[in-house]
């Protein structure tokens, strides 16, 4: 049914830390790996080893450059998948009822057996989260790894979306964003998590944590000073002994160099 639930019991979703993401695309690969052989039709590729390869992905990592008025440019890697919106425009436009939002956890899903592949939901999504699979002719989207998160055959630590489980930087967090006490909600509050395209009125569940401002080395930055000027103990003995060897004076290359600099 394409009528959206008035409210959902939980709001399961992702929190993506743009400060931490290193842009390795491991989440893209693990997502494709898990989802091509589990829920629904496989994620097909076309001309995979040819001149013009393309394929279906549920998660893609963009890279943006911030160019401030002063200082160095900053590169931000930006993973993007379905945001499981509360006012999901992709659901209400669906003519068949294949697209729906679950009342119990807020996950937006596609019943692929009912999908006619009209593509209207992908048109309605501002985020490009839905892709029509060229081989299956049905719409594919992030399921929040619904076949992992409730899967009691998996170890408990594996019951999170594949992208979250695989992220080597800890840039992806999974949880209930409807519960203000959950770890993800706390993280969003602490770091000032934001909605993408809030003006589109979709009320996304997934939040993005903006990159923290980078430290800048300027004239007023404290100069680096040596923490140990004089050696003691074994190192002091070694220092003296090496000095006494022939050519020992030449070995103290750091001393004259220091004077030249100062």
């Amino acid at each position: 049914m394409t009528q959206l639930p008035v409210r959902t019991d939980r709001k399961l979703g992702l929190v993506i830390d743009l400060d931490t993401c290193v842009g390795c695309h491991a989440c893209v690969i693990s997502c494709k790996g898990w989802n091509t052989e589990n829920y629904g039709a496989p994620l097909s590729d076309q001309d995979a080893y040819g001149a013009d390869p393309s394929g279906t992905f549920l998660n893609r990592v963009h890279s943006f450059e911030i160019r401030p008025d002063e200082g160095a440019a900053q590169l931000v890697h930006f993973p993007k998948s379905c945001l499981h919106c509360e006012d999901a425009p992709c659901v209400t436009v669906c003519p068949t009822g294949a697209s729906y939002k679950r009342r119990e956890d807020g996950i937006v899903l596609v019943n692929e057996d009912h999908c006619i592949g009209c593509g209207l939901c992908a048109w309605a999504c501002p985020y490009g989260a839905r892709e029509l699979d060229r081989a299956a002719g049905v719409m594919k989207k992030c399921t929040l790894c619904i076949d992992r998160i409730y899967n009691e055959n998996l170890l408990e630590q594996d019951r999170v979306p594949a992208c979250v489980r695989t992220c080597p930087a800890g840039a992806r967090h999974f949880g209930d964003l409807g519960d203000p006490d959950s770890a993800v909600s706390q993280l969003v509050a602490e770091r000032g998590g934001i909605d993408l395209m809030p003006e589109q009125g979709t009320r996304p569940v997934n939040k993005y944590l903006p990159p923290r401002p980078r430290d800048r080395i300027g004239a007023d930055s404290p100069a680096l000073t040596a923490v140990a000027e004089t050696a003691s103990g074994f190192l002091a003995w070694l220092d003296r002994t090496l000095d006494r060897l022939p050519g020992g004076g030449l070995a103290r290359m750091d001393a004259p160099a220091k004077e030249e600099n100062s």
Partner: peptide
């Protein structure tokens, strides 16, 4: 607004997710 990364002129798309095309770009 799409990225939340600051003023429009200060942000630019640096690298697309894939070197090839995809459904979104074609559609």
């Amino acid at each position: 607004t799409a990225t939340g990364l600051g003023a429009p002129r200060a942000v630019r798309a640096f690298e697309p997710p894939h070197t090839g095309t995809n459904y979104l770009l074609e559609e």
